[in-house]
C-alpha cells in the first residue's frame, strides 16, 4: 500500500469537507477497498473512514413507512435488524460473503462499488429504492451505470438507502462457491405498481431489470408465467465458472425460484 493520511470524522459534514481534499477517498468497511489498496490499484492522499459517523449507522423506519438503512451500516446489522420489516432484504444481507465480511462491509460501500456480481444492487433496483447522498436523492433506476460505475460524483457520500416495502419479495442467489459472490442472483419484488425483477452477476453491464419477466409476472405472479420466456446469451458474462448461455439460463431459473419463494 502507498502511504495515506487516515481520518475518522464524526459527522457527514466533516466527512464531506475531508473528502474535498485532492485524491481523498471514502472508506466504508474496507472489504473491497483495502485489498485493492494492497494491490496498489489506488493511491489516495487520505482515507476518510465513514464508520464513526453515528447518523450513517443503523436501520430505522421512515415517516412514509420505508425502511431506512444508514450508508455505513454493516451487512450483519441489516441481516439482524431488517428481518422483521423486510425479510427478503435481511436474508440477502445475511448471505453476503462470510460473518467477518458482514461485520465490516457496508451497504454504502457495496453500492458505491457496484461490483457486477454484488448482491445489494439487485435488491436496490428491484425494490425501487432511493439512494440518499449528502447532496441529493437518486432513484435506483438512475444510480447504476454499468460495471463498477454509478451516478455518484467524486466526493459524494451515500448517507442512507430508503427501501419501500413490497407486498412480496425474495432473492434467489446461485452462489459461486469459492468467492461466495453471485454467479447469478435475482431479486423479485411485487408492489402495488407491478412486479420488478433485477438480475446481478449475469450481465457484462452489471445489474439490470428483466422487463419481459416483469410484464409477465405483473399479469400473473407465478413461476409458470415466465416458463415460455428466454434470455438471450448476448452480453452475458462468460468465464471459467459458466458460459454466457449458462448464465442466461440461470437468469430464468433463479427468477422462477425467487417467485416461488416470495
Amino acid at each position: 500500500m502507498y502511504a495515506f493520511d487516515f481520518e475518522k470524522p464524526k459527522t457527514v459534514a466533516e466527512a464531506v469537507s475531508a473528502l474535498a481534499r485532492e485524491d481523498a477517498m471514502a472508506l466504508g468497511g474496507g472489504q473491497t477497498l483495502i485489498p485493492s489498496l494492497k494491490q496498489r490499484l489506488a493511491a489516495p492522499s487520505a482515507l476518510v473512514s465513514l464508520t464513526g459517523i453515528a447518523e450513517m449507522r443503523g436501520v430505522c423506519t421512515g415517516d412514509d413507512g420505508a425502511l431506512c438503512i444508514g450508508g455505513a451500516t454493516p451487512h450483519a446489522v441489516v441481516a439482524a435488524e431488517a428481518a422483521g420489516k423486510y425479510p427478503a432484504l435481511a436474508a440477502l444481507a445475511g448471505n453476503i460473503g462470510d460473518p467477518a465480511v458482514r461485520n465490516r462491509g457496508t451497504i454504502g460501500g457495496s453500492l458505491a462499488n457496484n461490483d457486477p456480481a454484488a448482491d445489494y444492487p439487485a435488491a436496490v433496483l428491484a425494490s425501487g429504492a432511493t439512494i440518499v447522498t449528502n447532496t441529493r436523492r437518486i432513484a435506483a433506476d438512475d444510480f447504476f451505470e454499468g460495471l463498477f460505475t454509478t451516478a455518484l460524483e467524486p466526493g459524494e457520500i451515500i448517507v442512507e438507502v430508503r427501501f419501500p416495502i413490497p407486498a412480496r419479495a425474495a432473492y434467489a442467489k446461485f452462489q459461486q462457491p469459492a468467492s461466495r459472490f453471485a454467479l447469478t442472483g435475482v431479486f423479485v419484488a411485487k408492489t402495488a405498481g407491478g412486479v420488478r425483477v433485477a438480475v446481478t452477476g449475469a450481465s457484462e453491464n452489471g445489474v439490470f431489470r428483466w422487463s419481459e419477466a416483469e410484464k409477465a409476472l405483473s399479469a400473473s405472479f407465478s413461476a409458470d408465467a415466465i416458463a415460455g420466456l428466454s434470455v438471450p446469451a448476448d452480453g452475458m458474462v462468460g468465464d471459467l465458472h459458466g458460459t454466457p448461455a449458462y448464465r442466461a439460463n440461470l437468469v430464468k431459473v433463479m427468477t422462477q425460484r425467487a417467485v416461488s419463494a416470495a
Binding site: F6, A100, V101, N103, R104
Partner: peptide
C-alpha cells in the same frame, strides 16, 4: 487472521488499526 473487535469477528488483515 480473525480476531474479535468489540465482540464481533473481523479479518484483522482487512481493517486499519486506526479505524
Amino acid at each position: 487472521c480473525v480476531v474479535h473487535v468489540d465482540g464481533k469477528a473481523v479479518k484483522s488483515c482487512t481493517v486499519f488499526a486506526s479505524d
